[in-house]
């Protein structure tokens, strides 16, 4: 069976500055990978490049997602293929209601996957069901996307969207930042509940704390644009104790 994601020698720049300098990473279905590393190592760049953010330029390497050339696809197609990013800073979209946003996203994704669009009733029922996963209130439906949400609500809303879209690979970019311990637990439990043998996730974090809740199969340390060390979950603990300089 082929791998879910294969990254070979990926190089990327932003505004002419080299950020990724040869990343190699292979992810299989059913796995959870944590990526840790100091500020400026390229963690968020890696998630932006994989999801097709237009500000970044790939200057070398290859990425295969379910055997297909990921880098050749526009951002929306990558999403419809099953790649999901939980944003570090979820974007506020005034004037676009959560219902309208989510229904458009889900039905376009379903159409791409050869599934029929959901009726309004089916859709609202699904929303209600998935919201329970992270305890988001019903009132959210008619509010604008992320507008005026607290930090915790924004992150819960990301996991809610992940539950709606049922991605094959989820990248959680510093999902723990700005969360108190209760919100962190709810978010982590949501992620764990969505885990199946057929999907995988990449958890980008600075801190061991999140990995107490979302237990990784592999921990990678990204430093200066490359993965410099890979281990199991004990690597994160070592890191906590000795810092990046003691390890990388």
């Amino acid at each position: 069976m082929s791998h879910l994601l294969e990254i070979h020698d990926l190089h990327a720049t932003i505004a002419g500055k080299d950020i990724l300098k040869g990343v190699d990473l292979t992810i299989n279905a059913g796995e959870v990978h944590a990526i840790m590393g100091p500020n400026g190592a390229g963690k968020s760049t890696l998630s932006a490049v994989l999801t097709g953010h237009p500000a970044y330029t790939v200057i070398g390497g290859q990425v295969l997602f379910r055997g297909k050339d990921l880098l050749a696809m526009p951002a929306e197609q990558r999403a419809r293929e099953g790649l999901f990013l939980s944003f570090q800073y979820p974007v506020e979209i005034p004037g676009v209601s959560m219902v309208n946003f989510m229904r458009t996203a889900l039905n376009e994704t379903r159409s791409y996957r050869g599934q029929e669009a959901l009726s309004a009733t089916e859709f609202l029922k699904l929303m209600r069901q998935k919201k329970q996963l992270v305890g988001i209130s019903e009132k959210m439906n008619n509010r604008s996307v992320n507008e005026g949400y607290s930090g915790g609500e924004k992150k819960k809303n990301e996991i809610f969207q992940m539950a709606m879209l049922e991605p094959v690979l989820s990248i959680l970019d510093e999902t723990d930042s700005g969360l108190d311990i209760d919100a962190l637990r709810i978010v982590a439990e949501g992620v764990n509940a969505l885990k199946t043998a057929d999907n995988a996730s990449i958890v980008i974090t600075h801190y061991q704390r999140l990995l107490d809740y979302i237990v990784p199969d592999f921990v990678h340390i990204l430093a200066d644009g490359r993965i410099v060390k890979t281990g199991d979950k004990t690597l994160a603990l070592e890191l906590e104790e000795h810092g990046y300089n003691g390890i990388a």
């Binding site: 237009p54 929306e76 999403a79 979209i93 676009v96 946003f101 994704t109 996307v145 879209l165």
Partner: peptide
């Protein structure tokens, strides 16, 4: 808003639709 546009595309909404939705929101 380019960041809103990217956020919408990352959820599977194609770019022309995302643009239309943002313009509609602006005029709402």
């Amino acid at each position: 808003d380019e960041s809103a546009l990217f956020y919408m595309r990352q959820r599977g909404i194609d770019e022309p639709t995302a643009r239309r939705m943002l313009i509609g929101a602006f005029l709402k």
